[in-house]
Amino acid sequence: MDLQQLRYVVAVAELENFTRAAERCFVVQSALSHQVARLEQELGTRLFHRTSRRVSLTAAGEAFLPAARQCLEAAERARAEVAAATGEIRGRLSVGVIPTVAAVDVPEVLSGFHQDHPQVRIGLLTGASDALVRRVTDGRLDVAFLGLPAGATVEGVEGHVLATDHHVAVVAPDHRLAHRKRLGLDQLADEVFADFPTGTPGRAQTDRAFAAAQLDREVAFEVTDAHLMAALVRSGLCVGLLPEAFAPRLDGVTTIAVRGGPSRAEHVVWSRRGPSPAAAAFLARLGVAA
């Protein structure tokens, strides 16, 4: 068993396709398939179900994948630690970001980090907070920016609260409530809403606020992109609730303060195994001691 075989297995598992996995790994498919088959022979079991239409992990493959990722992370970390010992930050920095991050100008921070550490390979992924936490936990992300209901804790990772924020109502400029300076949740309860998908931390913030006020509401539009939410609001189809610090980035909508509305905390989190040299340097740029 060697690291290259582990890389091939991880690539096939993530892409569910041998051809695309070979392209990612810059090898011909036959070579990748041969190495995966050799590893399966060594382990004495198949890691993948193979059909003409798709590839999926077997139960053994599901058990093998987290350990394979940890081995690759450890190897990458070892190289980075050696480089750091000689005074050079190398390796990778994989950053996860929620779509409504507002406490940090992520592109600006990444640009400055890249100028200071050009040998570090930077990657970025957007997603919901819960999905980003899972990726930090299993080593696929080094650092992630999250938005969670105020007071919520993050399990399985280390973290630091960057800022807390209240939500504002987001309505079309010609909406009947657009002239108001402040609203109560009860004045919004009869509106049709756009919100993030059920079960996500972004949705939990607003659901908790309405539940605490013993109010029901209709969420007709579930979206993962705040800019799409704003477009739906501009069209007059619905209203929304978004963090006050993020809302000014949206064009063509009116924002209104909300009494008793949701609040959230923005966190930056990293692995409990400790940050890599690149991640530690990135956190230091944010003023966060890991």
Results as ranks from 00 to 15, higher is better:
residue 2 D to Q: 05
residue 2 D to V: 00
residue 6 L to N: 02
residue 9 V to R: 02
residue 12 V to T: 12
residue 13 A to N: 08
residue 13 A to G: 09
residue 15 L to R: 15
residue 18 F to W: 13
residue 19 T to Y: 12
residue 22 A to P: 08
residue 24 R to T: 07
residue 24 R to C: 03
residue 25 C to K: 15
residue 28 V to G: 06
residue 30 S to N: 09
residue 32 L to I: 07
residue 34 H to E: 11
residue 34 H to C: 05
residue 35 Q to L: 08
residue 35 Q to T: 03
residue 36 V to G: 07
residue 37 A to W: 03
residue 38 R to Y: 02
residue 41 Q to S: 12
residue 44 G to Q: 12
residue 45 T to I: 04
residue 46 R to T: 03
residue 49 H to Y: 12
residue 50 R to K: 14
residue 51 T to Y: 02
residue 53 R to N: 08
residue 53 R to S: 13
residue 54 R to N: 14
residue 55 V to A: 03
residue 58 T to Y: 06
residue 63 A to F: 04
residue 65 L to M: 10
residue 65 L to D: 09
residue 66 P to S: 07
residue 68 A to L: 07
residue 68 A to H: 13
residue 69 R to P: 01
residue 73 E to G: 00
residue 73 E to V: 00
residue 79 R to G: 01
residue 80 A to C: 10
residue 81 E to S: 02
residue 82 V to Q: 07
residue 86 T to G: 07
residue 87 G to C: 15
residue 90 R to I: 04
residue 90 R to F: 04
residue 91 G to T: 04
residue 91 G to A: 06
residue 95 V to D: 02
residue 100 T to Q: 11
residue 103 A to I: 00
residue 106 V to T: 02
residue 106 V to Y: 01
residue 108 E to A: 15
residue 111 S to K: 12
residue 113 F to K: 00
residue 115 Q to E: 10
residue 119 Q to H: 15
residue 122 I to M: 09
residue 125 L to C: 03
residue 125 L to R: 14
residue 127 G to C: 03
residue 127 G to R: 14
residue 129 S to W: 04
residue 134 R to W: 05
residue 134 R to K: 15
residue 135 R to A: 06
residue 135 R to Y: 10
residue 136 V to D: 01
residue 137 T to I: 13
residue 138 D to K: 08
residue 139 G to F: 01
residue 140 R to P: 01
residue 143 V to W: 11
residue 144 A to Q: 04
residue 145 F to S: 00
residue 148 L to D: 00
residue 149 P to H: 12
residue 151 G to W: 08
residue 152 A to F: 13
residue 154 V to R: 09
residue 163 A to Q: 11
residue 164 T to A: 08
residue 165 D to V: 05
residue 166 H to M: 07
residue 168 V to N: 02
residue 170 V to G: 05
residue 170 V to M: 14
residue 172 A to D: 13
residue 174 D to I: 03
residue 174 D to T: 15
residue 175 H to V: 03
residue 175 H to F: 06
residue 176 R to F: 06
residue 178 A to I: 08
residue 184 G to C: 04
residue 185 L to H: 03
residue 187 Q to W: 02
residue 188 L to M: 08
residue 194 A to D: 10
residue 196 F to M: 12
residue 198 T to R: 12
residue 201 P to T: 11
residue 202 G to L: 02
residue 203 R to P: 05
residue 203 R to T: 01
residue 209 A to P: 12
residue 211 A to M: 05
residue 212 A to L: 12
residue 213 A to Y: 03
residue 215 L to P: 02
residue 217 R to D: 06
residue 217 R to F: 05
residue 218 E to G: 07
residue 222 E to G: 06
residue 222 E to P: 07
residue 224 T to Y: 08
residue 227 H to C: 03
residue 232 L to S: 10
residue 238 C to I: 01
residue 240 G to K: 08
residue 242 L to N: 09
residue 242 L to G: 05
residue 246 F to G: 00
residue 247 A to N: 08
residue 247 A to F: 06
residue 248 P to F: 13
residue 254 T to V: 14
residue 259 R to F: 01
residue 260 G to D: 05
residue 262 P to T: 11
residue 262 P to N: 13
residue 263 S to M: 05
residue 263 S to W: 00
residue 268 V to H: 05
residue 273 R to H: 00
residue 278 A to F: 09
residue 280 A to H: 02
residue 281 A to M: 14
residue 283 L to S: 11
residue 283 L to T: 06
residue 284 A to M: 06
residue 284 A to Y: 05
residue 285 R to D: 01
residue 289 A to V: 13
residue 290 A to C: 13
residue 290 A to R: 04
